[in-house]
Amino acid sequence: MIPASFDYQRAASAEEAVSMLREHGEEAKLLAGGHSLLPLMKLRLATPSVVIDVGRIRELSYLRDGGDQVSIGALTRHRDVETSELLQREVPILAHVAGLVGDPQVRHRGTIGGSLAHGDPASDLPAVVLALGGTLVVQGPGGRRDIPATEFFQGFLETALAPEEMLVEIRVPKARGGWSYQKFNRRAIDWAIVGVAAVRNGTTGVALVNMGPVPLRASAVEQALAGGASAADAAALAAEGTDPSADLNASVEYRQHLARVLVRRALEEAGA
């Protein structure tokens, strides 16, 4: 469990991080909370030659009320998302789910930006931001650009971030309607075997955890609901368009079954 050797640099601002990324190119990795990157490095599945620590950029840790949306700095820790009164009031699903990530140690280190930038289909927060229809703000050498969450996740652990870009902010619309998060796992600390986020905010957004190489919208379910289908009928379509993998916890068939059951439960709980 000893990582390969690497150089360590610390960035004091997003601008500095981006210029360091430019300098070192694909050899470099940003380090936020380290709770996804460091395990990969210790297993030598990731061997960056430069690690750029952005974890201490204070000004990227914030939660701001932006009228009809909430803006969250990329380096905000899960624990701060979980306990934010602003989110608990305006986007309760996000605060709730941040409290389901790993265990207290993980939540005190891991960041919302790291979780999204890592793009793990098994992670909880990407699905929630997808279901909410959030926006990701990234900064590159040429300045900032906005990427809708629906376009951010592109392949297994691949996102729309360019190698020289850094995620700086996440924006989510306020969503005070019904919601539900169904996390099916075996131990409290584990990633979801399958997870479902459902949010009613005018229309109903439904996103799936661990049902394919990327975090997914359950489009067939959403369309059925929009067309007036019952929760049970819509949920029956939950596995459509998914491409889950098989692992020690679940076969493909079992995951698809779970998706249908959990979507139904989520829709019932959200009152869709």
């Binding site: 297993l43 265990d103 075996r186 131990r187 409290a188 600390i189 584990d190 020690l248």
Partner: peptide, 16 residues
């Protein structure tokens, strides 16, 4: 051995 890490080998904790 497919369960050589504590992510795959499920040791329960007080939470379980």
């Amino acid at each position: 051995l497919r369960t050589s890490t504590l992510t795959d080998y499920l040791v329960p904790s007080a939470a379980e």
